[in-house]
Amino acid sequence: FVGIGEGGVHGWQRPTKTMIEVMSDYLVGKDPNLIEHHYQWLYRSSHFMGSVVQGALSAIDIALWDMKGKRLGVPIYDLMGGKTRDRVRCYMHVGGDTGEELAEDALRAKQQGFTAVRFTPFPNDYYLHKSYTEWADEAVERVGMVKDAVGSDVDICVEIHRQMNPAESIWLGRRLEQFNPFFYEDPMLPDSPARMAEVQAQCNIPIATGERFTTIFEYQQLLENGACAYVRPDLCLCGGLSGCKKVAAMAEAQHVKVIPHNPLSPVSTAACVQLDACIPNFALQEYTGESEPPKSVLLVEPLELIDGYLTVPEGPGLGIELNEDTLARIGEDPKVLDTPIGFDGSVQDR
């Protein structure tokens, strides 16, 4: 049996590949059933941890669960408590250089059957703004145009991408309350849960965050501070299916729901669906669209998407089969260092 996994350190493909290769020396010849044991052995084998280590471990964890499901002839969710839903509600990424283009793209997603859309309220050159007022006014206008376009039938999800400091995001959040966003994502850098809790307390909008976190311990701090309404674990970064199932359980104890982060390939999507299918506190699934190459040709049979919902597959393991011919032809998408520089010449957050 062959297990499929994916590691996601968002652009740092080569270090993650190297880490998997280093870990493979330990894994060859071991019992693939001992998923948690192998994670603990590899995670605790060095003084130093971090995103590259966790990205590699996540890929291994997903692959071992896929292998186990195939060996036993059952979906992964059957091995993690059983199915809690038949379909997974998705939100679709939308975008546009102008407010009009953004609203048109959101309307297209609605016409395709999606009942939630996610977008940034800022233009691509957000980092060149000359005043906070100019920046925030444009954001409010763009969000309003999307809301007018999709109406109350579609939830809007606003993504700040950590591009504001707490004071800025609080004031913008208050202005966005009128549009009733489903969530307000990453309104500041995630490295201070206490400060994030202040943003949550002063904005009457649910905050979603956590996509950069690599361990359950970071989520513990986030939840203890009451800093969000939704957690966003990345299955390809935060310990795979095993790690993110733990995050979901921690969140459940705080009445917090789960919106898995998923900017990668259909393998990541398939892993997310397995998690979504077996947790009671699932809210929404990130979906970037898989109808265009290379995503559309990576799997022999794509996951079924109907009216903005992914059908939970019944096949063993992840329920997918890689198209080996396509995989062999896909080249590396190399990391490009393009950190934005602001109007005053200073480094800006992305």
Rank of each mutant, 00 (worst) to 15 (best):
P15Y: 08
T16V: 15
T18F: 05
I20Y: 02
V22W: 06
V22Y: 04
M23T: 10
Y26F: 10
V28H: 00
K30F: 10
K30T: 08
D31I: 02
D31L: 01
D31G: 00
D31V: 04
P32Q: 14
P32T: 10
N33E: 15
L34P: 03
I35C: 07
Q40D: 10
W41E: 09
Y43F: 15
R44S: 08
S45I: 09
S45D: 12
S46G: 14
H47S: 15
M49C: 07
G50K: 14
V53W: 09
V53K: 09
Q54M: 15
Q54N: 15
A56N: 13
A59Q: 07
I60K: 07
D61L: 11
D61C: 09
I62P: 09
A63G: 03
A63I: 13
L64Y: 12
D66R: 02
M67K: 13
K68F: 11
G69P: 11
R71S: 13
G73L: 11
L79H: 12
L79F: 11
M80K: 12
K83A: 15
T84F: 15
D86L: 10
R89F: 11
C90V: 10
V94L: 00
V94D: 03
G95I: 03
G95P: 01
G96L: 08
G96W: 08
G96S: 05
D97S: 14
E100M: 03
L102I: 01
A103E: 09
D105S: 02
A106Y: 05
R108N: 01
Q111N: 04
Q111I: 05
Q112E: 06
G113H: 08
T115A: 05
T115N: 13
T115Y: 04
T115W: 07
T120G: 06
P121M: 01
F122W: 06
D125N: 14
Y126C: 00
Y126E: 00
Y126P: 04
Y127G: 02
K130N: 12
S131G: 11
S131M: 05
Y132E: 07
E134I: 01
W135K: 06
A136F: 03
D137F: 07
D137I: 05
A139W: 00
V140S: 03
V140D: 05
R142Q: 03
R142W: 07
V143H: 02
V143N: 02
